[in-house]
Amino acid sequence: MTEPGMNRKTFLKQCGLSAAAATCSLGLAAVFHNRRPVPEPEEAVSVGSFLVPGTERLMAVVQGTDHSVLVRAAVEAIGGIKRFVNPGDRVLLKPNCAFDRPPHLGATTSPAVMGALTALCVEAGARVRVTDNPINDPEGCFIKSGLTEAVNRNGGDIWLPSPGLFRTTRTGTLCMTEWEALYEPLAWATRVIGVPTVKTHNLCGATLGLKNWYGLLGGPRNRLHQSIHEAIADLGQFIRPTLTVLDGTRLLIRNGPTGGSPSDVMPGHTVIVGTDPVAVDAWGATLLGLSPGDLAYIGLAESIGLGRADPDQLSLFRRIEAGS
């Protein structure tokens, strides 16, 4: 047990250790002293416009019972997919996948439309990813709505939301200036296409294209219902998509936005494709028997310059019957 006493070497070693420990202790204090008086709030990021220049005011409304051809026909009518998607583009599709419901209940975008649109973008040479931040469990929503299958079969991928994908984002001017948003997929994408469906909504009358961006928000978004029309108009400032593809193949006409019974659903046989989100929603409202004036957010969106409700003002507006 007993060691020899200290010689010069062990003495110096001991002094060195002691000095090092003392220096470390004082150094720690110096380095960390009041280093972070208060945690800095995260700097908000912005989402740029995904609109292809020169395509500002286009819209096509296509009707037909073969739903698989409607998307292609509508996109052809405003110049074809190559006008909007280039080879090598990274396309983010944002369907309405808010609820854990089978497709025939009309609470989510139909697999037929999503599949056709995915195929169209893949054909154009793009990489396709699909995301949404639903009310119910995200994975369950994508599987049970049939969207996982429809997207994967046509060469696209589902990108499920996770906490690390959200950032504080500049979202608007009317009622939400900054909000937690599903930012990373938007940062990844070079093109963004909204693929909403047509539903009645208990609070704001109808949920169409602009309201669909709600699904990119995180945070306490249940507060937004207190100023729902201002919030929807803000969503139009938050993101300007390349295209909006409004799935009106079937319409949820009552008990929206969740539905739950086949009797809540009516056939619509319509797909609307446009670059002006206000015009698409104004026309979409008519599918539910509403006029654009019934939806307060449409007027608000017009007043802050997001688009024009009157489709006759559009440079290319077509109504087409497709298929049989």
Binding site: S25, L26, L28, A29, A30, F32, H33, N34, R35, R36, P37
Partner: peptide, 11 residues
């Protein structure tokens, strides 16, 4: 990552 006010005394 912070050492506040006069807590350097301990070090």
């Amino acid at each position: 990552g912070n050492l506040a006010h006069t807590m350097w005394i301990g070090f």
